[in-house]
């Protein structure tokens, strides 16, 4: 099945149309195409700034953004802010995972546990996490707690639901096979359900980490004196658009780096899956 999805060797002469159904492209071409869109983006930005199509105060050229990023990092301790933001993400995300993953797996495995928790989890999922900011501030003041709590609340309900759904999709026959081989309940859970669902859990984590960044910026804009979001919000007051854009750039780069980290982990942890798994 996977064979005809691979690139046939030596079929260069036989060229199809540029856009073709069911035709994969090489890793190199994929990287190249990915680069093209970015080059176009920056050229467009550069041109827009250069020709002053927009007010330069609102949209500085890309190189000026880089210069202010350098200045922020070297002279104004922006590195510490970045570190603080990453720590906030990691602390709250790890806490959410520690609860969401076991709970999601149990809910996906046992109908009774799902019956107990799912109505609760579903309700919370529909509540937008930022709606809790006022009450979190009232409860926790302006320390680290409300920020961590917001990130936690923004991630956990969706993560539980994703993990539960993936667990529920573990094929019945795998569980039944283990049972007819003599597996007891906890053995089925540990030796079949968990390893079967683990790759999908990692994918769910990757997706939810991206969401965590969203809430991080919200939390830092509203109530923080440090962190990437706080720096950007302060820059807004002086209309330092180059610094705001530098912050956005850093968040983008960090998001990409975490994404790549997860892809790498996926390949390392699950070598038995297709290389182009998902």
């Amino acid at each position: 099945m996977s064979q005809n999805r691979q690139n046939p060797v030596g079929t260069r002469a036989q060229r199809g149309p540029w856009l073709e159904f069911l035709r994969p492209i090489s890793t190199r071409e994929s990287a190249l195409l990915g680069l093209v869109i970015w080059v176009l983006f920056f050229v467009g930005w550069e041109v827009a700034a250069w020709r002053e199509l927009v007010n330069p105060l609102l949209l500085p050229p890309p190189e000026q953004v880089l210069v202010s990023l350098y200045d922020l990092l070297v002279n104004r301790g922006f590195g510490v802010d970045i570190g603080v933001s990453i720590l906030r993400i990691l602390a709250s995300f790890v806490a959410a995972c520690i609860i969401a993953i076991p709970l999601g797996v149990l809910m996906g495995s046992f109908a009774r546990i799902e019956g107990l928790f799912n109505p609760f989890v579903s309700a919370w999922r529909y509540l937008p996490a930022p709606a809790f900011i006022p009450i979190l501030l009232a409860w926790f003041g302006t320390g680290e707690e409300p920020k961590l709590a917001l990130l936690f609340l923004g991630v956990i309900w969706f993560l539980i639901t994703l993990v539960m759904d993936h667990t529920r999709n573990v094929r019945d026959e795998l569980i039944e096979t283990a049972m007819t081989l003599g597996a007891r309940r906890w053995q089925v859970l540990w030796t079949v359900i968990v390893p079967a669902v683990l790759p999908n859990i990692l994918i769910a984590m990757r997706q939810m980490l991206a969401i965590a960044w969203t809430y991080l910026v919200i939390a830092e804009i509203i109530a923080a004196t440090n962190g990437i979001g706080a720096v950007m919000w302060r820059a807004r007051r002086f209309l330092d658009t180059d610094e705001i854009l530098a912050g956005i750039l850093v968040i983008g780069v960090l998001g990409l780096a975490f994404d790549l980290l997860f892809r790498w982990l996926y390949r390392i942890l699950f070598p038995y899956l297709d290389r182009n798994g998902r």
Binding site: R171, E173, L174, P195, F270
Partner: peptide, 8 residues
Amino acid sequence: QSYTSFDW
């Protein structure tokens, strides 16, 4: 009938 090998 369906394949039940443990992929991992």
